[in-house]
């Protein structure tokens, strides 16, 4: 399969979104809203839930399953208030000693006037910086598209895992081709995708991600829900055994190496 086909697969509207994963993996999810600075972003959601008997905080991007729902959630493109809401929830997780799980599924942060005026750069930067301070286990899962800084805002963790058909890149292949090949009609997006090495396997080989989670039969999602649930349970247990200093040290070194 060509790399751009993977990109198309990662963007498929039929793929489970963050709510599907939450409902099928966690129990008693309570969604928490608002950035406490005057807004709430529908493209980024979060809350608290049980993973088996372990309370956890969940944050992540929300994509819709069709055009109408996607219009409501801005196609998963987060705004400053979304990142600030997630930041607030992650800080709260740290305070109450809850592990943090982030689901990444975004083409990138929303490029708009209001986004800039409210400081999208600052909001993402703060999410990245603060991720190095939380003394609770933190795991990121790229479930579909992992695009640019908008993805990285939730991508600094002890462990970054990717679903088999997800992609993670500095920019969309279309954007990459437009900038570097001066491609105006999208005719070189396939070539860009090949060069960018953005599939789960590419990124695993380059040491960018820690694990690939197989998706199994795409007509039944139970397989992948089980896989993710088991992986999270196991890894949170392992990470919880580390003392806080070691946890922070390892997280620092994990990103220091690049």
């Amino acid at each position: 399969m060509g790399r751009f086909e993977k990109v198309e697969k990662a963007r498929d509207l039929k793929r489970p979104n963050i709510y599907d994963y939450i409902n099928n993996i966690f129990d008693d999810f309570i969604e928490l809203k608002g950035d406490r600075c005057g807004g709430d972003d529908s493209a980024i959601i979060g809350g608290i839930a049980f993973l088996n008997n372990q309370p956890v905080t969940i944050v992540g991007h929300l994509k819709g399953h069709d055009l109408n729902s996607n219009l409501k959630v801005n196609f998963g493109m987060g705004s400053p208030s979304g990142y600030r809401k997630a930041l607030r929830l992650m800080q709260q997780a740290n305070k109450f000693n809850r592990p943090i799980i982030s689901f990444i599924d975004t083409p990138g942060a929303y490029p708009g006037v209001e986004s800039e005026q409210k400081g999208i750069g600052e909001a993402i930067a703060k999410c990245i910086e603060d991720s190095f301070n939380y003394t609770v286990p933190k795991i990121s899962i790229i479930i579909g598209e992992g695009g640019s800084g908008g993805a990285l805002g939730f991508g600094v963790s002890d462990q970054v895992v990717m679903l088999e058909n997800a992609v993670y890149s500095i920019l969309s292949p279309e954007g990459f081709a437009a900038i570097l090949f001066k491609d105006k009609d999208g005719s070189r997006k396939e070539e860009a995708a090949e060069l960018m090495k953005l599939t789960a396997l590419d990124l695993f080989e380059q040491g960018i991600i820690d694990k690939i989670i197989p998706e199994g039969d795409l007509n039944s999602n139970n397989f992948v829900y089980d896989k993710i649930g088991n992986h999270l349970t196991q890894e949170i247990q392992t990470l919880s055994r580390l003392d806080k200093k070691t946890l922070l040290h390892n997280r620092y070194e994990r990103f220091r190496k690049y």
Binding site: A125, L203, Q206, R256, Y258
Partner: peptide, 12 residues
């Protein structure tokens, strides 16, 4: 590519 993105995490 992605290595450039990782610099943002490293510096922060």
């Amino acid at each position: 590519g992605i290595f450039s993105l990782m610099q943002m995490a490293k510096v922060n």
